[in-house]
Simulated assay, not measured.
Amino acid sequence: MKSLLLVGTVIVATTVVGLAEGLYWVVGNRATNTCDIVTSNPIVDGNIWFADGPYNSVDDAKLARSTISQCPRDQPPADNPK
């Protein structure tokens, strides 16, 4: 019974960690005057003046970025999220 409980705990912990990966946020970067797509939950202060997300894919984040009025329209492609 203890081993079954241990296995269940490991499966739940692995699932939670797996769900946290692959998330993306759109952040307003005041230093570069751009909206960047990042892979870690941002802290809004200083140069990061807003954050939106999380999104499940880069494509979802790109779509969101295109609809945020504070983001410049001539954004570079987000091939490599930070």
Rank of each mutant, 00 (worst) to 15 (best):
E21P: 10
D45Y: 13
Y24R: 09
Q70W: 00
V17A: 11
I48P: 08
G8I: 11
V10G: 11
T39M: 12
V38T: 14
D60N: 13
A13N: 08
S69I: 04
L19S: 09
C71H: 03
Y55G: 03
P72L: 06
T34H: 14
G18V: 14
D36E: 15
G8F: 13
P54W: 05
A51S: 12
L63E: 06
K62D: 07
A61H: 02
N29T: 15
G28F: 01
L19R: 08
Q75S: 15
I68V: 00
D36Y: 06
D36P: 10
V38F: 10
C35K: 03
N33F: 00
E21C: 13
D60Q: 14
V27M: 10
E21T: 12
V27H: 08
P72Y: 03
V7S: 04
S69P: 01
D45L: 14
V7H: 00
R73T: 10
V10K: 08
V38S: 12
N33Q: 01
A20C: 09
L5T: 14
A13L: 12
R30H: 01
D74M: 04
D36K: 07
G28P: 00
T34W: 14
W49A: 05
S66H: 03
G22P: 13
D45M: 14
L23G: 13
P72K: 06
N47L: 12
P72M: 04
V26M: 03
A31Y: 11
W49K: 04
L23P: 11
Y55H: 09
D59K: 15
Y55E: 05
I68G: 01
A31H: 12
P42R: 09
V44P: 04
Y24A: 08
W25H: 08
D59R: 15
Q70K: 01
G53P: 02
A64Q: 02
A51Y: 02
N56I: 06
I11S: 13
G22Q: 12
S66Y: 02
T14E: 14
A31I: 11
Q70G: 00
S57F: 05
K62L: 05
T67Y: 01
F50P: 01
P72N: 07
A13Y: 08
R73W: 07
T34P: 10
A51L: 04
S57R: 06
G22A: 12
R65E: 04
L19T: 09
I11G: 10
Q70S: 03
V27T: 15
I48N: 10
V17L: 08
A51I: 04
V26Q: 02
D45S: 15
T15E: 15
V26G: 03
I48M: 09
D60V: 04
V10F: 10
G28H: 05
G28K: 06
C71R: 03
T67K: 05
A64D: 02
F50D: 04
T67A: 06
G53K: 02
N47K: 10
A64Y: 01
T15F: 15
G8N: 14
D52K: 00
G28D: 07
W25G: 10
P54L: 06
Y24N: 10
I48W: 07
I68S: 01
G53D: 05
V12Y: 15
L63W: 02
V26P: 02
